[in-house]
Amino acid sequence: MTLKEQAVTFLGLHQPGNPVILPTVWDAWSAKLVQEAGFSALTVGSHPLANSLGKEDKEGMTFTEVTARIREITAAVTIPVSVDIESGYAQKPADLINGLLDAGAVGLNIEDSVHSEGGRLRTPQEHADLVAELRQAADTTDVHFVINARTDVFLRQDTGNPAERLESALTRLRLAAEAGADVLYPVGRHDPETLRTLCTDLPLPINAIGIPAEANRAALAESGVARVSFGPFLQNALTEHANTLIAPWR
């Protein structure tokens, strides 16, 4: 498939109540593992990618390092690839879109914590404006690049009590939807009621975190989730298993 066809296919996989499962990978080996297991698409996580490069998450990598690894991944598989680009590595939106397309990706996650500025949280409108710039840049190409707008408010302790965090997430993600996002990502592990509220009250498909060992796809589907990714948890589980295997050889 061309990148244009991959992007259309990828977006079409996002079905509320019938979520696409995107195992989160970090290199060509893990990407091939996912494709050979029969998954329809995958996502590249910043945390496992940084670990694989001996770097720190929260933009311890450069965008050049990220795109170099993405090229290796897209050369190894034929399914659509989306990339967690953290808060954008202080790059211009057009450079992010063009760099990822050149590397063979058809989607991205963009978060509202700005790691290059001490981890501050963008204002809701500021984050929406960045999403709008990414959409505008993508629209100059012939690929409908799939933009997954993420908010970190549930992960932070400086954003109020649980009810205030939920309201803040709803506000931020509604603005991101109006700005041109395709998918909304209220990152964090949520109780069923909160997740159902997010899926019901927001106007676009919702991305939720899945824990590989828990295999709760049915419960996430029942909540209305349209997309499930694993964050660092697949790599963490494999690390744990590898340690178990090699421990007797010490």
Rank of each mutant, 00 (worst) to 15 (best):
A137L: 15
R122W: 02
T159Q: 14
Y89R: 03
D152H: 05
G180D: 05
N148L: 10
D142I: 11
L121I: 08
Q125Y: 02
A128F: 03
L166G: 04
Q157F: 01
E164H: 03
A103N: 08
R156I: 09
S168A: 11
D139G: 12
R71N: 13
H115N: 05
N98C: 09
R135E: 14
V183Y: 00
T123M: 01
E117W: 05
E164W: 10
A149C: 13
D102L: 11
Y89C: 13
H144T: 03
L173H: 07
R165H: 00
E117N: 06
V183C: 03
R174N: 15
L121E: 02
D102C: 04
S82R: 09
D191K: 01
R174G: 03
A90T: 05
V183W: 01
A94V: 15
L175C: 14
T151V: 03
V187F: 01
I110D: 00
L101V: 15
S168E: 03
I73G: 11
Q136E: 13
S113A: 08
A128S: 10
A76G: 12
D112F: 04
Y89H: 07
H144L: 09
D84I: 13
T159I: 12
T141L: 09
A90N: 13
E167H: 03
I73K: 06
A163H: 11
T74D: 00
A163R: 10
N161P: 04
L175P: 10
G99H: 00
D152S: 14
R122V: 01
G99A: 08
V81C: 06
T123Q: 02
G180A: 02
S168N: 06
